[in-house]
Structures are given as C-alpha cells and as structure tokens.
Design a protein around this nucleic acid. Structure first.
Lengths: 293, 293
DNA sequence: CACAGCCGTTAGTTTTTCTAAAGGCTGGTC
DNA sequence: GACCAGCCTTTAGAAAAACTAACGGCTGTG
C-alpha cells in the first residue's frame, strides 16, 4: 500500500473536527482549494471515501470515522510528546565570569527578560573558562586573546577589552582625567587579574603603591563605589555604574588590551530555540555601549 | 511552534530503528542525502538534536529517544488503523441484468473467485439500467447502443452483441445450420426483448409463427435446453451452455446488432482496490470467448 | 428567483523533496 | 603514515508536492 501522507492527516483531522472545509482551511491558514485537494488525494491514497459532501459542510463516512479516531489518537500522542520536548528546550545556560555576571549581566537582566519572556535562563558563573564542549543550549562569554577554537562551537567577538580606572564621584581627586603618575599616588583597588600591578609594571613606574586586592572584579568595583580607592576594570564591567553616576572614570587606557571578550555557543543550535537570538541580543547590547568619554 | 513535518517522522523512526542513515535510506527508497536533510530539518523544526553522528552510524540522544518512543507508538497506531481500513474496502458490487448474471457470470464465478480470493462480491441484478451514478466500488455491465455518458463513470465496450439461435442437441431438426425459413417453422422461444419478433419483422417473413414468450432471456434459454424450441439470444449468454453441450447453435445472425455490451465503473476508483483489476478480468473473459462456429 | 455558503477543479506559482555529485570524518588495516 | 571502507553532510539543480487565485456548480433559505 502506498505510504499515507501523514501531513494530510493533520488536515483531515481538522476537517473532521469542524465538519466544514472552509473553516478547517481558515484554522490551518490554507485556501479551501488546498484543503479540498488534500482530502481528495488522501482518499485516493487510502482507497476509501472519508467524507460525505453537502451544502452544509461535510460529514464523516463510517470509514472516515474510524480514520478520525485513529488519527486523533496518534496526533494527540505526538503533540503531547513534542510539546514536552519543545518546552524543555527553552532553557538556556549562560556561562560567564562572576564579575561579568554581576557587573554586566545583572544590570541588564530586566532588558533580557523583557525581550525573552518565556526564557528560562540559568546563569552559571565560573572562575575559569569551561574546558568541555558547550551543549546545544549553552552560551559562554569569556575573555581571551584568541577566539574559541573548539570545533563544535561557534564564536563571535563581543568587544575589545579596554581598561578604565574608576572611583566614587565623591572620592577626593585633583582633576580628571588624571595622569598615571598622579593616579598611582592614590589607593588602588585591583582584582585577581592583578591589573594594576601589570599596568604599573608595563609603564615602568616605581612599585611603592597602596594596593587593595580582591578576589573578584566586582568586589573591587564595589569598593571603588564605596570610596575606598581607584579600581581598574574593563569598560564593560563599569559602564552600568558610570551610567548610574555611582562611579566616574578618571583614566582610560589609550590602548585596548590584548584580550578581547568572546561569546561562544554550540554549533548544534537548532531552529525554534532562541539561542541565536539571545546571542544576537547580547551582541547588540555590547555594540550599543556608549563610548566612555 | 512551527508544525512538525509528520512525514519526516517516518524517516526519523526508520533511522532510529536502523541506527544508520544509509540503511534507512535503502529501506525507504531514498538517497542518503535526502534522509540526512530530512533529519536535519526535523531537528531544526523541533529544536532538539535527535542523533549523535559518528563513523559507525548514529545513536539517539535522550531527546531523540523520547521522540522515537512517541513516534513509534503513533505510527503503529496509524498503521494498524489504516491497514484495517484498506482491507475493508475489498467489497465490490456488480450491477447487471439478471440473465447476464445467470448465463454469463454464474458459469464464471469459480474463475472470478479463484482470481480474487479475498473479494467480497455483491451481484445486484436489475431489469433496467441504473439511473444513478455508480459509487466508487461499483461496476455495471449493460447493453446499449452508445457508451455510458455519465461524466463520473469510466466506460469500456466488452463485446458486440450478436444474436444466435440455439436449441437442445436432441431437438428434432433437419440440418445445421438452418435457413431462416426453416427455423421459423419451429417453436420459437423469446425473451422480453422480443428478439424473434424483431428478427421476423426485419426479414419480411410472414407472422404466423408459434412463439413462446418468457420474462427473462435465461428462462427462454432454459426452455431451449429443455427441448421446447429454438431460443435466440446474444452469443455471450449461451456460450457456456454450448461449451457444455447442453445447447447447439443452429443459426447466427450474420450481422451484429446495433447494441453492444458495455462495462462502466466509477471514475472515483482509488488506488489499492481491485476494481480496475476486476474490470480488466471481465474484459479479458469477453475477449477470450471462442468464436461460435 | 436571488443569494449565501458550501465544495470542487484548474492553471500557474511557490515550496518542498529528492537526486547526483562532491567532500569530510572516523576507524581499521597494512 | 597511507590507504580504504563506510559513514554522514552539503550543494545545485530537477522533479514533485503543495498551494493560491479564480472560476464554477450545488443546495438550502428567504
């Protein structure tokens, strides 16, 4: 027996439900001619007449009724199974550094949840980049000097990483912007990247400076907000606080650093899932950052 | 959620069963590229990865396993329902004249049921041609001067209608074949078509003849078998009795009559049903009739 | 008789499905 | 390391299916 066109069964079930080709066509977003042709071809393929046609619509023949029962059961079975599978799939895990999470993502969480109301987002913070491959609904945002080379990943650069020195607006300081020499006379707040030390070493200044160290960039930034000194951090981490006037920038590295921020996601992303749209949204947010000074 | 392509599920189920795209393609009579594309599109539509691909074939992911289970259940449900429905449909109704039924069809019923062992045949005899359209599993055999003109029917000529005069082999007669003049001196048996009267009128002979009339051609033929006279009937109605030596032909009309025998069936015949094959068988039986004399 | 509402058909367009061909990857063998 | 077999993927183009728009027929109602 020639293979039944299973897609036609969906049309058949809708016609059977409504008893009316035109109404089924409306529901299915098809023309009534398409529905008519579909039913006709299905009848030819099956070798039975499924509907009696009349001026008040159609009614099922006995054979049609038996087809309808089986078809409804089968479609219900599939619908249930696939809705489940589809639903499970609107869950995305975002892997990123804890400071990026708290200083970049959290201030934008309202925007993200507004854009993707049905998204179930898991934010997993890490101190080191993931070593394993990303699953199909995972995104990672990570700094590095080269893009992600994992062949199962797709990768895109989000931004240069440019360092900026920030402090509380109330922090006593002579002028703005400051020269580096003046900066270094002030209490300096640095994170685990030891950015100040690297900066000082790079510029050749002396090393008798007051340094306060924190495990997390975010903590250093919070300390700066608290008036405890000058923090240096990537621009994207402090942008939101600058916008909110909790911080002011007092120096910016004229050269971007060697590192850039990358976003990676699995090549096995599939249609219907918002993962690529989330990637695009994040990309757009970075692109839309106002320039500092 | 975009509608799942149900036909692709059939492909998916076959790949899942074989764990191998190439083998599934072989079974489905598709190229391996077609199967690959089908699975890929299904994954995009569903938003999940269904298979892990490898050098030794494919294996289901957990989501794929869940899809497979639901798909197999649904396809099994449909297969069972539609195989049943297809089977029920081997019921054919044959409409024909009662004499054609008893004198042409009955002697061949063994051949027909041998050829179509699963056929459920209903023979409905009528004295007048059907006025309504034939249903999709109905065949009609009817004499006429023109083919069936009903636009929903298909029609084919089975045979010319040629009249033959027959009697019992034991019937007293001078010789064979007889001239018409001699014939007309004998008791003549005719049916409702009043074929003898028409024949006599057409040839211009006198009309003082002994005529026995019957409601049915078959009854006239049975009377001839009983030795009561000479019956005239279409060749196809007496062929079987001649073959069985119950009758002998003593005259045949040198010209075929204006009427021919036609077979009609519904244009809405559908694939998988034997109706066309039954029509062909009946056609072949008429074509295979041995010439009388 | 006119009209509304239904279904059916046709010709042509659009979309989907498929094939053929080319190519990449993995595991096994020599 | 080279080669091969067997697997899957992708692409371009052809074929088939699906669809639309338009036209038309039929039935029931007022």
């Amino acid at each position: 027996m020639k293979q039944i066109n299973l897609n036609a069964l969906r049309v058949f079930a809708m016609v059977a439900r409504h008893g009316n080709l035109q109404r089924a066509a409306d529901v299915l977003n098809l023309s009534r001619g398409a529905v008519s042709q579909r039913i006709k071809q299905l009848e030819l393929d099956l070798g039975v007449v499924l509907f009696l046609r009349g001026a008040q619509g159609v009614s099922l023949t006995p054979e049609g009724e038996r087809c309808r029962a089986a078809t409804d059961d089968a479609l219900a079975l599939l619908e249930t199974a696939f809705v489940d599978i589809g639903a499970v799939n609107d869950r995305v895990t975002l892997h990123l550094g804890s400071s990026t999470a708290s200083k970049w993502l959290m201030p934008r969480m309202d925007g993200l949840t507004t854009e993707f109301p049905k998204l179930s987002l898991t934010t997993q913070v890490h101190e080191q980049p993931l070593q394993r491959s990303l699953g199909r609904n995972e995104i990672a945002i990570w700094p590095g000097t080269t893009p992600d080379t994992n062949p199962t990943h797709q990768c895109r650069q989000l931004t240069d990483i440019r360092l900026v020195a920030v402090c509380s607006p109330d922090f006593p300081r002579s002028d703005r912007p400051m020269g580096l020499e003046t900066l270094l006379t002030l209490p300096l707040l640095q994170d685990a990247h030891r950015r100040w030390e690297k900066l000082i070493q790079a510029t050749g200044y002396g090393d008798t400076h007051k340094l306060l160290n924190f495990d997390r960039s975010a903590l250093a930034i919070e300390a700066a907000i608290g008036g405890h000194g000058i923090a240096v951090a990537p621009t994207y981490m402090v942008e939101a606080d600058i916008q909110s006037k909790r911080l002011v920038d007092v120096w910016i590295d004229p050269e971007p650093s060697e590192e850039r921020l990358f976003i990676s996601w699995s090549r096995e992303h599939v249609g219907g899932r918002p993962i690529r749209r989330i990637v695009d949204w994040i990309t757009d947010e970075f692109a839309a950052s106002p320039p500092i000074r």
